[in-house]
Design a protein around this nucleic acid. Structure first.
Lengths: 344, 344
DNA sequence: AATACTTACGAAAACGTTTGCGTGTTAAAA
DNA sequence: TTTTAACACGCAAACGTTTTCGTAAGTATT
C-alpha cells in the first residue's frame, strides 16, 4: 500500500531541500529550469497532491463552506444545497453539509465542530427547536469569532448577519390572490404553529390578501398543524363537511393531503375546490391533479447564499460591517389544482 | 471581533508554556492541581476549542467521512446520507457530502479534493458517466493510498472494496412475483439502459420471475429508457394500446408516470393494470393510488456503510485485507396500486 | 584582481497541536 | 550536609506546507 507522497519524500528522493521542491512545483524562477522539470516530472509520476490540511493550517482558511440545515431528506433543502454546491465548486470551495435533524443540541454540536477549523463560514437554516428556544448563542459565538454566517429560509430576525429569504408573506398573498381571482370566496388555510417563522409569515400573507378583498378573517378556516407526521387525520377532520371553495396550504405535504382527503369525499379538484400549495417539489409536479404552487427557487437561494458568503470571505477583512438581506422572488406555478383564470 | 483563541494565547496570558496548557487541559498529573484549575477556568471563560485542522495534521486523521453521491436532490440518496450521518455522529465523526451530479469529471475532482487530506475514507455511489466510461482510476488511486472505500447501490463489481447493496435482482423478482401471484399474465417492465447496473439487475430479476412461471420473454413488453427527464412521452407511446395487466417499474418516477398515462387513457389501477415500483419514496407514498413498491431501506444502507467504514478506519491498520459485501434485504410495501392477493 | 551582481538553492519560521524528555527546584532520605 | 527522589514545568520535534531571508558559487564589471 503506497503511502501518500509529500514534499519531503520528493525532496529526499531528488536530493534537494523541501523548499526547493515547493518552489519548483510553483514554477518559481528562483529554481533552475532543469531542477524544476525534474521535480515536476517526479511529482507527476507519483501523483503528488498537496495536503489540504497542511494548507488550511498554514493559510488559516479551509476553503470550505459549512452548511447546516434542519433536514437532509427534504426536497427544498437539497435544492438549496444544489445551488450552494454549484457556485462553491465554481469558486474552488468545498462544501460540508450537516443536518441538525431539527434538534437544537445537534445544531450546536455541528456548528461548533465546523467552527473549530473545518469551515470558513456558514450557510444555515435553523432547526425548529432553535426557533422555539430562541437560544442563538452558538450562532452569535461563531460570528463573534469572525466567521461569516448567511442564513436562509428559516432565519432569525434578531441576528445581525446576511440573509437570503423569500417574501413569504407576499408569496402567500399572491397564492391567495390567485384563488380569489378565480372566484374562490371561502378559502381555508393549512398552516403550521406560529413559532415556525415561515408558517406565520405565510399566514399573514393569506390574511392580507383576504383583507384586500374585504373578506373578514374567519378562524374556522384556519388550521394550525403541530404534528406534521400525523397531519392527515387533522386535515381530514378539519375539512370534513366544511363549506369551502379554496385551500391554501403552506407546504407541499399539507397541499397533497388536502387534495387527497377532499378527493376521497368525492369533491372534485379544481372544480369544487381549488388548491394552492407552497414549495415546488416532486409531489406538486407529479400528483394528480398536479398542484398549483408557489415556487421558492431553492437553487437560486443556494447560489445567492454561497455567492454572498464567498464574497464576504474574500473581501480583505474590511471590518466595514455591512449586512445584506436579499429577497428572492417567488413565482406562482399554475397547474391543474386550480381553475383557470376566467378573465385574461 | 474577538479572535479564535489558541493554546498560545492562553499560555501567554497565564505566563506558562504552551505544553503546560495543553497538558493541563487534559488533566495530566504532570501539572500541579493549581495550574490545572487556573488553565481550565481560563479556557472555559474564553470558550477554548482545539483547532481541528491542527489536530488532523498532527494525528494524520481527520475523523471525517467523505460521501460522494450522484445526486443530492434525490430521496433515496438523502435517506442513505441520513443513515450515514446518524452513526457517524454517534461515533464522533464528521461527514462531508459531495455530489458528482452524475458527471465523471466532478466525481474525480471531488474525490481528489477529499482524498488530499479532508477525509479519512469514502462512502460512495458512482456517477452514471463513470459507469459508462468504466474508468475507475480515481477510486483505485485513493484505495491504493490506504484510504478505505465503501460503495453502495451503484457499485463497481471489478473494484475490490467493501460494498453495501440490495439484491436488486431478487427485489425485482419479488416484485414481479407479486404481480404474477395476483393473477397478472402480461407484465411490462419500465427499465433503464443496460449500463446502469441496478437497472440491468432489476431487469434480470423480472425475467427470472417470468421464467419461473414459464412465461417467455417478450421484448414487446420491455422498455429501456435513456432520457429520464423526458420519460413521459416514451412511456406513453410504449404503453398506448398495449395489452397488459401489470407493470413493473425500476424506479419511482417510471412507476408514477406509468400510473399517470394509464389513468389518462381511462385504465383503472389496480383493477385493469397493477403497478409495482422500486424505491419507497415520497411519491409512492402520497400518489393516488399509493404505489406498491420495493423498499430499499436506504437509511439502513447508510448506517451499515458508515459502520463498516469506521470499523475499517479504526482497526489498527491490520494489513489483513478483508472486504465484505453486505446485502440488505428489500421488502415489498403493498399499497393501492396492486390488487389484493386472492389466496391467503 | 577586486568588487558587484546573478543564479540557485537551503535554513528556518509559521500555522496549532501533542508528547517524550530534559531540568531546575524543593523536599525527603541517608 | 550530601544524595536522591518527586514534582512541576519547559523545550523541541513532529505533522506538511509556504515563504522570507541568507548565502555559496559563479559570472560579469571595473
Amino acid at each position: 500500500m503506497r503511502q501518500k507522497i509529500t514534499l519531503k519524500h520528493i525532496a529526499k528522493e531528488l536530493d534537494v531541500s523541501v523548499s526547493t521542491v515547493s518552489k519548483a512545483l510553483k514554477d518559481s524562477i528562483e529554481i533552475s529550469l532543469d531542477t524544476r522539470q525534474k521535480v515536476k516530472a517526479f511529482a507527476k509520476l507519483y501523483n503528488y497532491k498537496p495536503n489540504n490540511i497542511a494548507l488550511s493550517l498554514k493559510n488559516r482558511k479551509t476553503k470550505t463552506l459549512g452548511v447546516i440545515i434542519p433536514e437532509i431528506v427534504h426536497h427544498f433543502f437539497t435544492t438549496v444545497i444544489g445551488g450552494v454546491e454549484k457556485v462553491a465548486n465554481e469558486k474552488g470551495y468545498n462544501v460540508i453539509i450537516c443536518s441538525s435533524n431539527n434538534s437544537f443540541d445537534k445544531e450546536v454540536i455541528n456548528m461548533e465542530m465546523l467552527a473549530s477549523g473545518s469551515a470558513d463560514g456558514f450557510i444555515m437554516s435553523v432547526a425548529k427547536e432553535t426557533q422555539q428556544k430562541k437560544d442563538y448563542h452558538h450562532i452569535q459565538e461563531t460570528m463573534s469569532q469572525g466567521m461569516p454566517v448567511v442564513m436562509f429560509d428559516r432565519i432569525i430576525d434578531e441576528l445581525v448577519c446576511d440573509k437570503i429569504i423569500i417574501d413569504d408573506a407576499k408569496g402567500a398573498q399572491t397564492a391567495t390572490n390567485h384563488l380569489l381571482s378565480i372566484g374562490c370566496k371561502k378559502i381555508a388555510i393549512l398552516t403550521t404553529v406560529d413559532y415556525i417563522s415561515v408558517g406565520k409569515l405565510r399566514t399573514n400573507g393569506y390574511l392580507r390578501a383576504l383583507m384586500a378583498y374585504d373578506i373578514p378573517q374567519n378562524d374556522e378556516y384556519i388550521l394550525k398543524i403541530e404534528d406534521v407526521d400525523n397531519c392527515e387525520k387533522e386535515i381530514s377532520d378539519f375539512l370534513k363537511n366544511k363549506d369551502i371553495d379554496g385551500v391554501f396550504a403552506v407546504n407541499e405535504l399539507f397541499a397533497v393531503t388536502a387534495a387527497k382527503v377532499l378527493s376521497k369525499e368525492g369533491i372534485n379538484i379544481p372544480n369544487d375546490v381549488s388548491i394552492v400549495g407552497f414549495t415546488d417539489g416532486i409531489l406538486s409536479k407529479h400528483f394528480i391533479p398536479s398542484l398549483t404552487t408557489v415556487s421558492q427557487h431553492g437553487e437560486e437561494m443556494g447560489e445567492r447564499a454561497a455567492k454572498l458568503l464567498i464574497e464576504k470571505l474574500e473581501s480583505e477583512d474590511t471590518t466595514t460591517e455591512e449586512y445584506r438581506t436579499v429577497i428572492i422572488d417567488t413565482s406562482l406555478v399554475e397547474r391543474e389544482s386550480t381553475k383557470k383564470t376566467r378573465k385574461k
